[in-house]
Design a protein around this nucleic acid. Structure first.
Lengths: 205, 205
DNA sequence: TTGATTTGGAAGTGAGCACTCTCTAAATGC
DNA sequence: GCATTTAGAGAGTGCTCACTTCCAAATCAA
C-alpha cells in the first residue's frame, strides 16, 4: 500500500509498510483530541490506529513524536479546509464571517465534544512541554494575524468600519473562536453556535 | 491548628489534623490548573500541598476526590471574588464590563499561563469522566445565564440596546471570556487582554 | 493514667505505563 | 537465489503510578 504522503516514492529495499501513515495519524488525532495527551495510553493509541506497538515504534521515535506528527497533520488538514472555505469569500468581512462559520461548524455536536487538538495541547501540555507551548502560541498567533489581515482588508474594501482597531479586534475574534471550541466541549447544538456569528460581526462596525 | 473551613469545630477524639484543608486545597488548585488532572501525580500533589500521601488519603478517598474538592473550592473562591468585583457595578452594562474585566485580569501573565481549572477540566476530563463533564457544563451554563441576566437588566435600565438578543449575546460573551482563558495560556500581557473589553462591549449596542 | 480514636509518614504493592527485544515475514539489489 | 534491509507482532522490562498498610504520635473521654 501507499506508505507516506506521496504515493509514488522511490522505493528502497526492505519490506514495505502495510498501513497508510496519514490515515493512522487521522485516527491518532481523534484519540488525542478526545482524551488529551496524558490520558492517551499507547494501548488506546495503537488500538485506534490499528497497528501494533512495535510497528508504531518503527515509524515514530516515541509517543511524543506521534503526537507531534498528529498535531502537524491536524494543522495541515484544518489549513487546507480553511483555504477551501474562504475561497468564495471576497470582502474582508466575508472572510471573517467564513472563519467564524468554520469554527461554529466544528464546535457543536460530536465533533465539538471531541474538541480541538490545539486547545487541548494548550491546556494539557503547555506547562510541561515548552516546545509544544511555543508551537501552540505560534498557531494562535497565526490565526490572530490572519484575522487582523482580514479586518484590514475589509477596512480597505469598505466592508468593515475604518474606525476600529484591527489588532485589538482581531485578538478579540481569536478569543471568540477559541472560546467556541471550549464551550462546544460541553455539548451544544449547531444553532447555538451558528447564531453567534452575526452577533460577533458587530465588533466590525 | 484549624482543620476545616470553620475555625471552631466540635472537636472529636483523636489526633487533630496538622494542616489546614483549605490552604492545602489552594495549592492543589495550583497544580491541577497548571498540569491538568492526568499529568498531576500524587507525588507532585503531596509535594505542593505539603502533606504526606498517607495524610492525603486520610482526608480524601482518592485522587479524584481531591480534584473534586479543589474544583468546588475553586468555584467558591471565584464566585466570592465575582460578587466583590460586581458590587460597585450598577447598570447591566457595567456588570458585563466588570465580568469581562475580571476574566482579563485572570488571563495574562503568570496566572493566565497557569490557566483556568474549569477550562482544564473541560479539556482533560470531559471525555473520560461523564460526571465531571456534567459539572463543567453546569458551570458554563451558569456563567452564560448570569451574562444573559446582566444583559436583560441592562436592557431594562437603558444601558444596553433593547434590540439585541440577550440569549445569543450572552452565549457570545461566554465564548469571549472562555477564549480569553485559552489565549491567556499562551502568555499575553495585561494590556493585550484588557484592551479587548471595550471592543467586546460593542456587541451590546 | 488508660484506652479509644485519629493523624502523620514512610515503606510497600499490584497494576499499568512507555518503551524495547526478538523473531518472522516480505520486499529489493546484485 | 542469496544477502540485505525493513516491517509486523507479541512477549518482555523497568519504572512510575495510585493506593494501602503499618506503626508511632497526638488527642480526648473515662
Amino acid at each position: 500500500m501507499v506508505t507516506t504522503t506521496h504515493a509514488s516514492e522511490p522505493r528502497g529495499p526492505g519490506r514495505p509498510r502495510e498501513f497508510a501513515l496519514d490515515e493512522a495519524l487521522d485516527k491518532a488525532i481523534g484519540v488525542f483530541s478526545e482524551l488529551g495527551y496524558h490520558a492517551t495510553s499507547l494501548g488506546k493509541l495503537t488500538a485506534a490506529m490499528g497497528i501494533a506497538e512495535g510497528s508504531l515504534y518503527k515509524a515514530f521515535r516515541d509517543k511524543r513524536a506521534v503526537f507531534l506528527a498528529a498535531f502537524e497533520r491536524y494543522l495541515t488538514l484544518r489549513s487546507e479546509q480553511a483555504v477551501r472555505e474562504l475561497a468564495s469569500a471576497r470582502t474582508g468581512r466575508d472572510k471573517v464571517r467564513a472563519m467564524l462559520a468554520a469554527y461554529a461548524e466544528h464546535s457543536h455536536g460530536k465533533v465539538g465534544r471531541r474538541g480541538c487538538l490545539v486547545v487541548g495541547s494548550a491546556v494539557d501540555l503547555a506547562s510541561s512541554d515548552p516546545d509544544m507551548a511555543k508551537r501552540v502560541a505560534n498557531v494562535l498567533a497565526g490565526h490572530e494575524k490572519r484575522l487582523v489581515e482580514f479586518i484590514r482588508q475589509g477596512q480597505a474594501d469598505g466592508s468593515i468600519s475604518p474606525g476600529i482597531d484591527a489588532a485589538i479586534t482581531g485578538r478579540l475574534l481569536l478569543c471568540v473562536v477559541q472560546g467556541m471550541r471550549v464551550v462546544g466541549k460541553t455539548g451544544r447544538s449547531r444553532e447555538e453556535m451558528t447564531s453567534l456569528i452575526d452577533n460577533a460581526l458587530k465588533v466590525l462596525d
